[in-house]
């Protein structure tokens, strides 16, 4: 059945590997997630609607999506630079810097949250620069700039946890890039900038998009590190995962599942869009 939907190939093992992939995916991801959907279906439609479109919940969607988007964008820009520097240049201490990139994965999210809050709180290492009497903050009115306990703090946390996604998906792609094409472009008279924009960027774009999408998706669900730095004020700095926890605290599993389903669908749509975009760009390129 699969074979009719699949292009011919001389390579073996499609049936076996695909079968195993689907089986494992179903057992570990699809069935448990189906359980979530079933749970959210135990309340009726109007309850579902009320739970997922409450103004407070809507405010949290905006905040979560906005902050995740900004965080992922910062990561895409700086992640590209970092990956480029790590792959292409050599400088003292490079291996250590390379090693540090994984830190956000290795540190438990709660620890990251506490550490970031300690740094960005008004009495923290960086936070005090931005406080009303700090050397940066004094130029921004009587209150200075607050980072921790505002949406800015949430962006900081989400940038932190998403960084490895961009760098680590770009690195193999860059390492695997054919230098002959660059040389060819250069010998045909292209400037370095043209080579980068017309040759290098299109090659690594799929990886960059993947990294961006993964960082974004991860940020949408992030809880542990954000609750420490967010302030958690309703309508202002309350993220969606926190509202899910709040629902659980009141033993409303079904409503918690309902909100989870909504965010899950949204991130599924974003991920699918980017994966389709990549597939299309690959088609187009070849």
């Amino acid at each position: 059945m699969q074979l009719t939907l699949k292009e011919r190939s001389v390579l073996p093992g499609f049936g076996l590997t695909m079968g195993f992939t689907l089986l494992y995916l179903s057992l570990l991801v699809m069935i448990p997630l189906a359980g979530l959907f079933l749970k959210s279906a135990t309340i009726n439609w109007s309850q579902f609607w009320a739970a997922t479109t409450d103004p407070r919940v809507v405010a949290s969607y905006k905040l979560t999506f906005g902050a995740s988007l900004i965080g992922a964008t910062i990561n895409a820009v700086f992640g590209l630079i970092v990956a480029w520097v790590l792959v292409r240049y050599s400088f003292p201490g490079k291996n250590l810097v390379d090693a540090m990139v994984d830190l956000p994965f290795a540190m438990p999210t709660a620890v990251s949250g506490i550490a970031l809050t300690a740094i960005y709180a008004p009495n923290g290492w960086i936070g005090q620069w931005f406080a009303h009497d700090g050397w940066i903050g004094q130029w921004f009115g009587p209150n200075g700039i607050k980072i921790a306990y505002t949406p800015l703090g949430i962006i900081v946390a989400l940038t932190f946890i998403g960084l490895p996604f961009v760098v680590r998906t770009l690195q193999p792609a860059m390492e695997d890039m054919d230098s002959e094409i660059e040389e060819a472009a250069a010998s045909l008279g292209a400037t370095r900038r043209q080579t980068f924009l017309k040759v290098i960027l299109p090659t690594i774009l799929p990886a960059l998009l993947t990294g961006f999408a993964l960082a974004f998706a991860r940020a949408l669900g992030e809880y542990g590190s954000v609750v420490f730095i967010a302030g958690n004020m309703p309508m202002k700095t309350e993220i969606t995962p926190l509202l899910i926890v709040t629902k659980l605290e009141q033993y409303s599993y079904a409503e918690a599942a309902a909100i989870a389903v909504v965010t899950l669908m949204a991130s599924f749509a974003v991920l699918l869009f980017i994966n389709l975009l990549q597939w299309w760009s690959r088609r187009y390129a070849s």
């Binding site: 699949k6 669900g221 809880y223 926890v245 699918l272 994966n275």
Partner: peptide
Amino acid sequence: FQFVGKSLLITFIDLPYSVSPV
């Protein structure tokens, strides 16, 4: 291999990233 629904399958594999740990 090339087959129909590949992007969808990849997206399903991505899903656990976006599911809130809670």
